[in-house]
């Protein structure tokens, strides 16, 4: 039985990774989770310079999910390379660095800084954060802007490039095609869905940013549908995420066309969620007589 997968020439020991922003750079959870067991660690979005992020409250619980409006607070690429990437050298797992920016130039500068970092397996370009007004989602909701940034990043990148897509669009297929046409090596989806929560007693918004990104099991059916649509629209690999809590959830995404899957909010609920997925996927393959995940990837 083989749980290993290969995406854009990069080998993963299993198809399970975290969704960016829900696992820090692995360091924060390293006392609770054996990072060596993960298919990859996807680091929290990092920009050319440090970002302050949004005012608090930045998070709110919702039914089977949560809203967040962190605003991509990050320490900047220099400290990230010296501290976080250095830390990850101690582990035998792929590192996928999520990159954010306010402009094409800022994305490109961060990507250029990562070019010589030996332990970076892939880049994931965040063009879909709903909580940052300039950059972020602006690139992820207009196919022409998405093509422009994909081309610019691809030109600068030494590692395979994953474009992380926003669900806050009319046609996810059109966005996936735009990324593919511009040279993206893979796409990942979905990022969070824009939402809002109101405190009826205080007559105010729960989040200081008013709106935030919804994640967690509440969004899973939306994510499965979008992964299915994107996988049918493009030939490049799709990494699926959105509310995955169990191995059964992960297998839904794989059958819908995902070559790998990421766990987001559920890392907060139970830090062992990714490990449970890895074990559960193996169990499912054994029960169903599946030798290789490719047998069920995109079968629908």
């Amino acid at each position: 039985m083989n749980t290993a997968v290969e995406i854009c020439g990069v080998k993963f020991k299993n198809p399970v990774m975290n969704a960016s922003g829900t696992f820090g750079s692995g360091m924060e959870y390293s006392e609770l989770v054996d990072l060596n067991r993960l298919g990859a660690i996807v680091t929290k979005g990092v920009a050319k310079v440090p970002w302050e992020g949004n005012p608090t409250p930045r998070v709110a619980e919702t039914s089977s999910g949560m809203l967040n409006a962190i605003g991509l607070q990050n320490p900047g690429i220099d400290v990230f390379i010296e501290r976080d990437l250095e830390f990850l050298k101690n582990y035998d797992t792929n590192v996928i660095v999520n990159v954010c920016g306010h402009s094409v130039e800022e994305y490109v500068e961060a990507v250029e800084r990562l070019a010589d970092c030996g332990n970076v397996s892939m880049l994931e370009i965040n063009v879909s954060c709903p909580n940052v007004h300039e950059g972020g989602i602006a690139f992820g909701t207009d196919p022409r802007a998405l093509e422009e940034i994909t081309k610019a990043v691809k030109k600068a990148a030494r590692q395979p490039v994953i474009m992380k897509l926003s669900p806050n669009v009319t046609s996810i297929a059109e966005m996936a095609k735009a990324a593919e046409a511009a040279g993206a090596d893979a796409v990942s989806l979905i990022n969070t869905i824009t939402g809002m929560k109101i405190d009826i007693y205080k007559r105010s918004f729960l989040l200081a940013n008013r709106t935030g990104g919804l994640s967690g099991p509440a969004i899973k059916p939306v994510a499965v549908r979008m992964v299915y649509e994107a996988a049918h629209a493009v030939k490049i690999p799709v990494i699926g995420m959105g509310g995955i809590a169990t191995a059964e959830d992960a297998i839904e995404f794989i059958m819908a066309g995902a070559s790998a899957v990421a766990v987001g909010m559920m890392n907060f609920h139970d830090p062992r969620t990714m490990l449970k997925l890895i074990e559960g996927i193996e169990r499912f393959m054994e029960e169903q007589g599946i030798d290789d995940l490719s047998e069920i990837t995109g079968i629908l």
Binding site: T22, G24, Y29, K44, G53, R58, V59, M66, N68, I70
Partner: peptide, 12 residues
């Protein structure tokens, strides 16, 4: 308000 408690989510 916090989500993870361990320094990963940057919510708090």
């Amino acid at each position: 308000r916090m989500a993870c408690g361990v320094g990963a989510c940057l919510g708090c």
